[in-house]
Design a protein around this nucleic acid. Sequence first.
DNA 1: TTGTACGCGTTATCAA
DNA 2: TTGATAACGCGTACAA
Lengths: 338, 338
Amino acid sequence: MQQVSIKDIARAANVSHPTVSRALSHSPLVKGETAERIRQIAVSMGYRPSAIARSLATKKTKTIGVVVTSIADPFIADVVSGIEETANDHGYSVFLANSNANPDREVKVVHSFHERRVDGIIVTASRVGALYVPLLSQLKVPIVLINNQHPDEPDQFIYSVMIDNLKASTQVMEHLIGLGHRRIAYIGDQAGFQSDTERFAGYRQGLAFADYPFLPELVVHGDGKPEGGRQAMERLLALPMPPTAVFCYNDMSALGALRTLYGHGINVPDDISIVGFDDLSIASFTSPLLTTVGQPKQQMGRMAMETMLKLISGVDSKANIKVEGELIIRESTAPPKS
Amino acid sequence: MQQVSIKDIARAANVSHPTVSRALSHSPLVKGETAERIRQIAVSMGYRPSAIARSLATKKTKTIGVVVTSIADPFIADVVSGIEETANDHGYSVFLANSNANPDREVKVVHSFHERRVDGIIVTASRVGALYVPLLSQLKVPIVLINNQHPDEPDQFIYSVMIDNLKASTQVMEHLIGLGHRRIAYIGDQAGFQSDTERFAGYRQGLAFADYPFLPELVVHGDGKPEGGRQAMERLLALPMPPTAVFCYNDMSALGALRTLYGHGINVPDDISIVGFDDLSIASFTSPLLTTVGQPKQQMGRMAMETMLKLISGVDSKANIKVEGELIIRESTAPPKS
DNA sequence: TTGTACGCGTTATCAA
DNA sequence: TTGATAACGCGTACAA
């Protein structure tokens, strides 16, 4: 008899298992005195309830599944950290699964979560969300998306937490324009990602507000990673008239851009200003420190989990939560040279 | 009847539940013909087995618990990614829990894993391992530690995967000395961490091999994070005779050191060479690119999980796996000036 | 206030 | 090759 069960305790305490069960869950139905005695015996026997058996009986597992495209992505890691913290505080455990943005794997992961009867599923930064959202809603468990890249499909079962990209990127443009920049470039992500689309819209809106012309040659695309940013920046430098400031889709791209400029001996921010997006922790340790848009990453995770808790308990919650970014001005932006 | 169970299938197929169970697990005991029919019905009814019920019956959950000090630590995130991948490939799901290096929380987490009856526990970079290792071994589930910071206590239940710090840091010293450096500083972590102790030992060994004197003033301590590295570097610069090369305990510290040097207008590597340790992805996007020691982070995660799988299946495994680091020479190291 | 009896959805052990 | 029946550890009506 490896694991001690309530029956063992019942035997030791000369009561029935239900009484033990009640005593341990602090039910008012059991006499305080005996309840106390039972609890002491439980502790002395090193009893730990089986969440498995409990789940089978209650039909609740107190677990939630978290799908990420990659846990090695620092942005996502922060979000997950917020989810996990809140979950743990409320007695929930989190299953973590990597999808690698691979549709087959995503389907597999969702099935696995289903079989484990998770009480809810949180998906972060799903790029192929559209593919399996229908699959998800079949499960009839609450689903919360964080920074969903396909917010177009309206589904009453889907809740989301995302940043207000438009507003934040408009602020970036105001900052740059306020410094006196006119030739401002945009290094985007691949086409079709909602966050890129929205940030780009902010870029154009900023230009429009200032009555500056939109110059298509100043818009190049990377891949959201340093390498793409590097190449995109090379293309901008090859222009007959390069920009004096560059607004990068995210910090990772900005890192690549910074790298290219360093390689060309171009000084940031004296020669060219750079702005990122995300405020990854590295942004505070580049040289120069990166001006960027901070997203409350951990908090977004917390909010997603709080939304989840409400949904699980049957309370309705705001379907689409928008959080605000914060422009963090550091060292990579300055007025243009002349 | 929300969830369809094997009983529902049994009814639909006019057989008994055990037969359904056997058919679905491809038992040879059931006639191929009926088995096929049962499986089709199962699919058409959208059946998904309940891992909960299965676990209760089999006493195996096919889950493992992963304790991390912080999932936002990029090193750990990579390791976890390796664990998760391997786990998933073998039908295991992973519970992720943050301990924040907080002993109370670690104990809570371990209890939670116990209650969920995980088949094994992997702990990464535990700094307070000593505190709850006894607690862990009580559970009688396999435990694998990754980069345990307290490998001193020999416990037959504990398995580990760690990097050969001594060897790697000796290589770092050989590289630096080979470039012609004589005044080489060491920026360490806080006292008591095994990896710091070992890397520091490599530092001294490297010095000894070259017959260079060990100069205590060239050893300063950070906190393993950029801020600590920054301050440590300031202290080194304040020396009457600053070093020409600095070996940093890890990349995060090196980032801080780089930052300080940038602030002082000191060129890396022309004026001072810098070496890190870990090869975090940022190391390939600093300016200049960081010379560092690569650790097979994902692979360490995979190896830990593979060890776990062996232990779970009763096969014994190597108790202490040491993996080798790899010196990656990039741009932050060069011969000293004169 | 406590005990009896049953159910949760599977697997396992028999016997048929 | 299949079907009864029990078992896993807990929660919960219902009865006492």
